[in-house]
């Protein structure tokens, strides 16, 4: 038996190259990104008389803006893959930011909120921010699994409450005057730091989703919870983990955001949850669960960023920008739906 298996094994190894390779769906999304960029480049020369892409500071602004949403979108992607949704990201950004900001102030600042918490080492506010985000995510996950309420409702509740906490925490006043060390999180490496963090997070979670059991479980639960259960996966525990990680990433995004703009306010992060969901959906993550990749979401976030920057570059009115953005999200879902119908038809 062993010898037989060994022969089979060697036979297989020698023809290992035969493996069926399919074009990953990310390629088509990437083409869309390239297409949009070229479109703005052409329109730029036609109407503005300058290049859209050959402008380093514009490109830097695009990727900096994308980084914060992108970090959130990675967590949201995992949540959507489980068949859930997270509406609380934007509010949790504000909540994490406000609470962590009070731990990040420098004693030189004239309007210090709590003098006992000034000049702390840079990692203290970061850890506080991550912890607040993770806590919010944990509560989301706990509510969804233990009370069996739909993720939409659980995270909607968190969205409203977290915003309330953010306002209440400093009575609505913004917090600024961070220590230089903390501000590095947003400005180090010649202001590229947020982008580096985004890329590192994306790579880590790409690997997690593709090459670990954690990732496979996440897909399995979204694809068929009943099948996942009989396969021995502890669904409740896994979902709590996923929501907690999504919250942790929101906390991280909040830290990057306030370090970069050097102030935290209760109104920040408005509509971030929708941008993050949009990035995921544009990137091919299926809202019905079980399908989607981190790489797609990253490209999806870039598409959103390029569009936003491109419209501003073409001096298109902000109102039109929102109208077009909404249309793009709907079109992305329509395309996703058609892909699924096509898949169904071929079986």
């Amino acid at each position: 038996m062993t010898t037989l298996n060994d022969t089979i094994k060697t036979a297989k190894d020698s023809q290992g190259a035969k493996k069926t390779k399919r074009i990953p769906p990310e390629v088509s999304i990437l083409l869309v990104l390239v297409g949009i960029s070229i479109m703005f480049e052409i329109l730029g020369w036609m109407f503005i008389g300058q290049s859209f892409l050959m402008n380093m500071s514009r490109l830097q602004i695009i990727v900096l803006q994308v980084s914060v949403i992108g970090i959130i979108a990675i967590g949201v992607t995992m949540v959507i893959i489980t068949g859930g949704i997270d509406l609380s990201s934007g509010s949790v950004v504000a909540m994490s930011a406000m609470i962590a900001a009070t731990f990040a102030q420098s004693s030189n600042w004239p309007k210090v909120l709590s003098p006992a918490l000034t000049d702390l080492p840079f990692f203290v506010p970061i850890l506080v921010g991550l912890a607040v985000g993770a806590m919010a995510g944990f509560v989301n996950g706990w509510l969804i699994t233990k009370t069996k309420i739909p993720p939409f409702i659980a995270t909607l509740g968190m969205m409203v409450s977290a915003r309330g906490v953010a306002r209440w925490y400093t009575d609505g006043s913004p917090v600024s005057g961070f220590t230089k060390e903390f501000a590095m999180l947003g400005n180090a490496l010649d202001r590229w730091m947020p982008v580096v963090i985004f890329i590192v997070v994306a790579i880590i979670f790409h690997i997690v989703m593709r090459y670990t059991r954690f990732g496979k479980f996440t897909y399995a639960i979204g694809a068929n919870p009943q099948a996942a259960r009989v396969s021995g996966i502890n669904i409740d525990r896994h979902l709590i983990k996923v929501y907690t990680i999504a919250g942790l990433l929101v906390g991280l995004a909040a830290m990057v955001a306030i370090a970069r703009i050097k102030t935290a306010q209760a109104g920040m992060g408005l509509m971030y949850e929708l941008d993050a969901i949009a990035a995921a959906v544009i990137g091919g993550v299926s809202l019905s669960g079980g399908r989607g990749r981190i790489a797609g979401t990253v490209i999806g976030a870039l598409i959103l960023g390029v569009m936003l920057s491109g419209f501003t570059f073409l001096r298109i009115d902000a109102y039109y920008q929102d109208i077009i953005k909404g249309a793009i999200i709907v079109v992305a879902v329509v395309i996703d739906q058609q892909r699924q119908n096509k898949r169904k038809k071929t079986t």
Partner: peptide, 12 residues
């Protein structure tokens, strides 16, 4: 049939 339809045969 309790399979994860969006995943591959091997993954299932």
């Amino acid at each position: 049939l309790l399979l994860m339809n969006q995943m591959t045969v091997a993954e299932n």
